[in-house]
Design a protein around this nucleic acid. Structure first.
Lengths: 215, 215
DNA sequence: TTAATCATGTGACAAAAGTCACTGTGCAGC
DNA sequence: GCTGCACAGTGACTTTTGTCACATGATTAA
């Protein structure tokens, strides 16, 4: 991770399709903020002051239960924006989700008050926002599919597959306890299902990481 | 239900806040279509040709499982637009959900090709679209909450409460089998949980309808 | 090195949810 | 009035998931 990149460098690298005036606008009005791995970027109930775009790193988006359970929904990474930070932005609403940095993460923040103007002025921004809505909406539908229709063994399989694809590594570095938390299950259940997956030859279990064999 | 209303009447009645030019635009370009109770308005996998706005009646939105299960997500009624029909519209995508008319229903359809222009030309349309995205997004998050964190008894309670509030009647006219289908459960489970709710004094069970007592 | 802690494995049991089989009952159409 | 059918109730059982209690090995901090 390069600490010396300016907001301009990020915008150029992430959004080559943005029109020059929009890039300039973001350079003039946006801010760069850094978070360290594990830190919370958004909290449930917090007011939205800015639209958030992930520049570098990786962020996990959670929905929180009443007793502090953290149900994992999806990842955001370089070039993704938080759809809620755009939607809430326009109405000064509070966040309905929690976002946590997985790696050290850099985000771009654009004050909410500017959203309306940007949407009208910059066609490429308008398309970016619509595409953000669309893809997050679809991800939520996929989440609903899994949790509504699938049993835990299948959900676990999809979960690991997703990790493998996102992180592009066959070594999925995560504990059984964290998987259980993300799926709102319990560690013992996950351990047992993982054992079955190992017997089936889908994975090899190690301490602190899981080796994914289905590529 | 009045069969003699024109598209102009619907627009005036549902969207008084729309600017006159927008109302005129919709009158010129929109179409009215009627569906009878039980009919499907959108099918999973179908291409979106128009943005759909519910004018009269009530529509249930479902996510479909691989074996034809129908998981209920939320209602749309007069003045609501289908968020997906706006999002997909801009990218010529297929529908990810199924919509079924509960009552006889009238919808306004606006060809997708006009969305971009409308967003740019009409401020009140722009706000309407954003508000539609926002509220549907929140509904999906609520659905995820229930299905991820709650047991069936609580989900059933919320389900009935929702029916009561939407339909504004203490007589919820629905069979146990349909509730089971909507919640992706089984009739026997729902029957048993309803019995418990009756013993607790939350409802009174009748043939073909449930009487809601918690107002 | 020696605890203390963390990650995992596992048996036994409990609770929730789903399935099967069968019953009864109200009602619409003949 | 029958007949057939949709709707609802229920006991018995299975499967899935969650919980409790421990055990074991690896890692870390003192």
């Amino acid at each position: 991770m390069d600490d010396h990149l300016s907001i301009g460098d990020y915008v150029e690298g992430l959004f080559p399709q943005f029109e020059p005036a929009l890039k300039q606008f973001i350079k003039d009005n946006g801010k760069v903020k850094k978070f360290t791995a594990g830190e919370q970027i958004m909290q449930t109930g917090q007011y939205m002051k800015a639209t958030i775009i992930i520049a570098e790193g990786r962020v996990k988006l959670y929905r929180e239960g009443n007793d502090g359970e953290e149900f994992f929904m999806y990842y955001l990474q370089g070039g993704n924006a938080c759809a809620l930070s755009m939607i809430c932005a326009t109405k000064q609403e509070t966040s309905q989700v929690m976002a946590k940095a997985v790696d050290d993460t850099t985000v771009l923040m654009i004050p909410i008050g500017l959203m309306d103007d940007m949407m009208k002025q910059y066609k490429t921004w308008y398309y970016f926002v619509l595409e953000t809505y669309r893809s997050r909406f679809e991800e939520l539908l996929t989440v609903i599919d899994h949790v509504a229709f699938k049993a835990m063994d299948e959900r676990l399989y999809f979960y690991l597959q997703k990790q493998y694809r996102e992180l592009k590594s066959t070594e999925i570095k995560i504990s059984h306890a964290e998987i259980a938390s993300d799926l709102n299950s319990s560690r013992e259940v996950i351990s047992r299902l993982l054992k079955k997956m190992e017997q089936r030859g889908d994975v090899v279990l190690h301490r602190n990481f899981i080796e994914w064999l289905k590529f």
